[in-house]
């Protein structure tokens, strides 16, 4: 796929970063504002789609590799299951970090309050891990579909030569 015109590329270079920042904001404020890991991850994956459409496959291929997204997806899901299993002394998915004082461990006052980022225990951790997983997964779907529609521009490692 050829890159779009210079106008489209300049607009992408200017505004794609706002999209990325907004997606990361939605992910890390998942326990305070509407949204969360899934929604913010979809926004960041839209940023990847934006870059891929505006700049074409060759540029994107020189910027990122599929292996990074594979690592993000598997790592995110593993972190999620680990955060669920670490509270196993009580129950599965027990929120053992909440109100413990350490990481994400502040106490929340009842009723309306401005909200602090360092609250909610494993919920924030799980939002981060799910966001990582959704970014990796949706970007991988995007890159796989792109390389399936344009076989001449291949992404990532070449997998030639085995089981022939």
């Amino acid at each position: 796929m050829n890159p779009l015109s210079v106008v489209a590329r300049t607009v992408c270079n200017l505004f794609a970063w706002f999209l990325a920042v907004f997606g990361i904001y939605v992910i890390i404020h998942g326990h305070l504002t509407p949204g969360g890991g899934f929604q913010g991850g979809a926004v960041v994956a839209t940023f990847m789609a934006f870059l891929l459409v505006a700049h074409g496959g060759k540029k994107m291929q020189s910027w990122v590799k599929k292996d990074i997204f594979t690592l993000m997806e598997c790592g995110g899901l593993t972190l999620f299951i680990t955060a669920g299993l670490l509270g196993m002394s009580n129950t599965f998915f027990f929120n053992f970090l909440a109100k413990a004082g350490g990481l994400f461990g502040s106490v929340v006052p009842m009723g309306p309050n401005p909200g602090a980022l360092n609250t909610s225990g494993t919920i924030a951790l799980m939002n981060l891990s799910v966001g990582l997983e959704v970014v990796g997964g949706l970007s991988m779907i995007l890159l796989y579909m792109f390389s399936g529609a344009h076989p001449e521009e291949s992404f990532g490692r070449e997998e030639a030569g085995h089981d022939r």
Binding site: G30, H31, L32, T33, P34, G36, G84, F92, F93, N95, A98, K99, G105, S106, V107, V108, M110, G111, N113, G115, T119, S120, G121, T122, I123, A124, M126, N127
Partner: peptide, 19 residues
Amino acid sequence: QGEAAANNVVTSIVFDYRG
């Protein structure tokens, strides 16, 4: 809000009560 220590009740249901 007291149990999960999160302001967003929907998120505390999705990620804590129904993790």
